[in-house]
């Protein structure tokens, strides 16, 4: 589906897989824990407005797993190298969940090549007093059901049988996600201290029925990031890009339009 190219690129000794489609200003999209094995419908829509670049993270999907990959900081530094290697400028950096966390870590370090930041239900901080579920104890079915408000989407996903290759990729992604997020669970206790350094317009997107990271986190991020705004989707779980694809893409495009107007 869609008009995009696939390539491989080696950075800092690690060869990763890369999808790229569309034209316009560059948008680097950092995927979440489930990976970015296919060119998804939301990517196709965003490629209508941007030169969309979707790498598979080191340790995920068809990318290599480098010895140096231990934590989310390693991933953030990797993508700083990536931006430099591709000599991308005025980039709209976007990411969901684990990718959103990586984008925040990157932007807190250096926004030199960035024009805007969009994060959707990212990990990264811990808010005291908000109960969190232990997703690593969810069984296979719960791991899908709990990500969606609309259970028909979960039903469809659960009905699909996975190929051997898909199973292997899912396991690889699951292992790397554990490596990066197990402890401290899904956050970096020091990140909140430096989110004020993010000096590009930032858009925070969240599903109101997110069971993995509750929607209250959106407001906490808004308070910590100076030039930031929040968009919430009702009847939506942890993955707005899948559950509210059209609204999600429109919100991203509209906000970036306003940032750059």
């Amino acid at each position: 589906m869609g008009d995009y190219s696939e390539s491989r690129i080696k950075i800092n000794g690690c060869e990763i897989s890369l999808k790229r489609g569309g034209s316009g200003e560059s948008m680097l999209y950092l995927h979440g824990a489930a990976g970015a094995g296919s060119w998804m419908p939301f990517m196709e829509i965003l490629a209508g407005s941007f030169d969309l670049i979707v790498p598979e993270h080191p340790g995920f999907g068809a990318s290599e797993t480098p010895d140096w990959l231990d934590n989310i900081h390693d991933l953030a530094y990797f993508y700083l190298d990536f931006l430099k290697e591709l000599d991308l400028r005025d980039v709209h950096l976007a990411g969901g969940s684990l990718g959103g966390w990586t984008a925040l870590e990157l932007a807190a370090r250096c926004t030199f090549r960035l024009k805007s930041l969009t994060v959707c239900s990212p990990g990264g901080i811990y808010v005291k007093g908000l109960p969190l579920e232990d997703a690593f104890l969810w069984n296979a079915e719960e791991s899908i059901r709990n990500l969606f408000h609309n259970q028909e989407i979960a039903d469809r996903l659960l009905e699909r049988s996975q190929t051997e290759e898909e199973k292997n990729v899912a396991m690889k992604n699951h292992f790397t996600t554990a490596k990066l997020t197990w402890s401290p669970r899904n956050h970096d206790p020091h990140l909140y201290k430096w989110l004020h350094r993010i000096d590009v317009p930032t858009h925070i997107i969240w599903g109101k029925q997110d069971k993995l990271l509750p929607v209250e986190y959106a407001e906490e991020y808004r308070k910590l990031i100076p030039d930031s705004r929040v968009t919430l989707f009702d009847e939506c779980g942890h993955l707005p890009h899948t559950e509210k694809t059209a609204d999600y893409c429109k919100a991203i495009v509209d906000a970036i339009g306003e940032f750059t107007a």
Partner: peptide, 18 residues
């Protein structure tokens, strides 16, 4: 105990996990 508790990701090689 459930599978997810006995076999946290990364505790074994991918082959043993599968």
């Amino acid at each position: 105990m459930p599978f997810e508790m006995l076999m946290p990701p990364g505790y074994t090689s991918p082959a043993s996990y599968l």
